[in-house]
């Protein structure tokens, strides 16, 4: 009955059960004009897993996320989401790139949140969220709007539906961007430094939404240097260095007992300030 009363302070959360692999990346390579940015990246992410991807500037973190989301075509390797090969059609062992509208369909499985929010400035908040559900998924307008309102409540912005993006603070814009991505009901959410363009006082409001999302079982890959978020929400921390994943560990291990030299250098730099 009271066997575990001693450590209630630690076990505040039930252990999360991870599901089947949902993203499977094998040996992905990508070059820009002769510069190899991804040098054979392999990674498996399971259902409901939260992976934090760290690494210094230029190491290829954004490129990896953009390749997963098909914003950049890959040179070789495979990316599968829910078992489906992304970006290509495979026939008799030969690969041909998928046409634009089929890639667009695949991309709906993934939600992406950008460093600079990239909200649509000509649309109000609610239209930002509903434009794709209505025009692309052909959802009923009123239904889509009702869902958008629920999402706005979830990200803590119930009163902003008729505002234009320019009328919102950075933190508010980023939360709308998260709602916009969620409105497509993605299987996985990708975040590319979602808080690094924000004033310090706004970082928490965005991270809170993300932590919340992770608690509700969303599968997430998050590029961030917010190590507080990694501790609070990540199941795994990956370190990228010059286009290669050099370290993979639980947050606990990563911060207390990093294995690679790169991870030790990285930690010494970010923990210094």
């Amino acid at each position: 009955m009271n066997a575990d009363t001693a450590d209630t302070s630690v076990a505040s959360e039930p252990a999360k059960t991870l599901g089947e692999p949902i993203i499977v990346i094998e040996d992905v390579r990508k070059s820009f004009a002769g510069l190899e940015v991804l040098k054979g990246v392999s990674l498996t992410v399971r259902q409901s897993e939260v992976v934090v991807l760290a690494g210094r500037s230029g190491s290829g973190k954004s490129t990896l996320l953009r390749c997963i989301d098909q914003l950049e075509p890959i040179d070789s390797g495979t990316i599968r989401v829910g078992g489906e090969l992304m970006g290509f059609r495979e026939k008799d062992g030969k690969r041909t790139p998928l046409p634009d509208h089929l890639v667009a369909r695949q991309m709906r499985q993934l939600g992406m949140v950008f460093q600079n929010f990239n909200l649509f400035p000509h649309l109000t908040v609610i239209d930002n969220i509903t434009v794709s559900p209505i025009k692309v998924l052909k959802r009923k307008r009123e239904e889509a709007r009702a869902e958008a309102r629920a999402l706005l409540a979830r990200v803590g912005l119930p009163e902003k539906e008729n505002a234009y993006p320019r009328q919102l603070s950075g933190g508010q814009q980023q939360r709308v961007a998260i709602a916009r991505a969620l409105a497509m009901k993605p299987k996985v959410m990708l975040f590319d430094e979602p808080t690094s363009a924000l004033d310090p006082e706004m970082i928490a409001e965005v991270l809170d939404v993300m932590v919340d999302l992770s608690r509700q079982g969303m599968t997430m890959i998050v590029v961030t240097h917010e190590m507080g978020f990694a501790r609070a929400a990540a199941d795994r921390v990956l370190l990228m260095h010059e286009g290669v994943l050099v370290e993979e560990a639980t947050p606990e291990e990563f911060f207390t007992n990093p294995q690679s030299a790169e991870a030790r250098v990285f930690l010494s730099k970010i923990l210094r300030h």
Binding site: R66, D69, Q70, L71, D100, H101, A104, R105, M107, R108, L110, G111, M112, F114, N116, N118, L119, F120, V131, S132, K135, V136, L137, A177, R180, A181, A183, M184
Partner: peptide, 19 residues
């Protein structure tokens, strides 16, 4: 970034252009 964002919410070329 607008084109990226529109692609990320699953829009095809035509939808990105028009919307």
């Amino acid at each position: 970034g607008q084109n990226d964002a529109a692609r990320a919410v699953g829009m095809s070329w035509r939808e990105r252009m028009w919307l």
